[in-house]
């Protein structure tokens, strides 16, 4: 294998594995910047993956090549639905954020596998017929070397994810809505005094996390796993949360961290084909994202980085 094709293998598989993490991590950033801790990202991804696979299996004949893209919309809608449960519990009903998020994580795998068994009478679905394949950018892929590494047989969704990350950063830091959202995550009392609707803003943060987390799950199912079972989403939601923290609650940082974690994940899978990497025990690559998150949290993050009121309930005084 020459080094160009080696690099292009690394880049494209990094892109494929990072994309679901990028979407979900950005979602987490919205929720937490609004002050709602969302451990439930894992469960949201499960529901997104499940619903998109069911949609894909059912409508592949009708929609053909467009099916996986429509599957993203389905995943997003279902992700929003499950995130509303978390929003309601934490915002209106004063539930502990971690407990409520954990409930989502307990509920989603149970509900989805139950539904799979109820619909298909077996524990896992068939493989989907239409998935996100590889994409070559017309024109760009013809550029020597760079074209082959970055633009030929690559993941179109990864580029969309990067655009979404930039867009999310712009929304969060450069728009009025973003300022309002961050202010209810920082100091809800003050925001309330200024006339902002704390509950509505926090709802929108959680809903965005449901939307993007659902999309993340749908992407994973339709580009990596190809079917749905209890073992489809195991930890990707937590990795996304780690990426968000690693990225200091900032969408662009979260994207960078997610790319890195995707790189680590893909190495543990394609590592066997790469000289040098093949000798490293897979376990180091598997635990790297988790260990690095702990180290970064300890060494580089003071408490000052996260939104101040993150994880606290706001009770409007009468």
């Amino acid at each position: 294998m020459n080094w160009v094709s080696m690099l292009s293998l690394i880049v494209s598989s990094t892109f494929v594995f990072s994309t679901p993490l990028i979407f979900t991590a950005i979602g987490g950033a919205f929720s937490e910047n609004g002050g709602i801790v969302n451990v439930g990202l894992e469960g949201i991804m499960v529901m997104g993956a499940f619903s998109s696979v069911v949609f894909n299996l059912t409508f592949a004949d009708t929609f053909g090549k467009a099916t996986p893209w429509l599957g993203l919309i389905v995943g997003a809608v279902v992700g929003i639905a499950i995130s509303l449960l978390h929003a309601m519990a934490t915002i209106n009903f004063r539930a502990d954020h971690i407990i409520s998020g954990t409930v989502i994580n307990l509920l989603a795998p149970a509900l989805s596998v139950f539904l799979v068994k109820a619909i298909y009478a077996k524990g896992q679905t068939d493989n989907i017929a239409q998935n996100f394949g590889y994409f070559s950018f017309p024109g760009l892929s013809k550029i020597p070397v760079i074209g082959q590494i970055f633009f030929k047989d690559t993941s179109l969704l990864a580029y969309i994810a990067i655009i979404v990350a930039i867009l999310a950063w712009w929304i969060l830091y450069k728009t009025r809505f973003g300022l309002h959202l961050r202010s209810v995550g920082e100091n809800p009392q003050a925001a309330d005094t200024l006339g902002l609707n704390v509950y509505r803003l926090r709802y929108s943060g959680v809903i965005i996390s449901g939307l993007l987390g659902g999309i993340g799950g749908a992407i994973f199912a339709q580009s990596i796993s190809g079917n749905f079972s209890a073992g489809t989403i195991v930890g990707q939601g937590y990795i996304s949360m780690a990426a968000m923290i690693f990225g200091k609650w900032n969408p662009i940082g979260a994207m960078g961290a997610a790319l890195f974690f995707g790189f680590a994940q893909s190495l543990s899978i394609i590592g066997g084909q790469l000289p040098g990497i093949a000798k490293i025990p897979a376990v180091y690559l598997q635990v790297a994202p988790y260990v690095l998150t702990i180290i970064v949290l300890v060494l580089f993050l003071g408490k000052a980085v996260m939104p101040k009121a993150d994880g606290t309930n706001y009770v409007k005084s009468k």
Binding site: S100, T102, V103, L106, L107, F114
Partner: peptide
């Protein structure tokens, strides 16, 4: 399907929360 008991458990904890 067995998973219904995990749904029940999740629901119970939701209401406790």
């Amino acid at each position: 399907p067995f998973e219904i008991v995990n749904i029940v458990i999740a629901a119970i904890i939701f209401f406790v929360a």
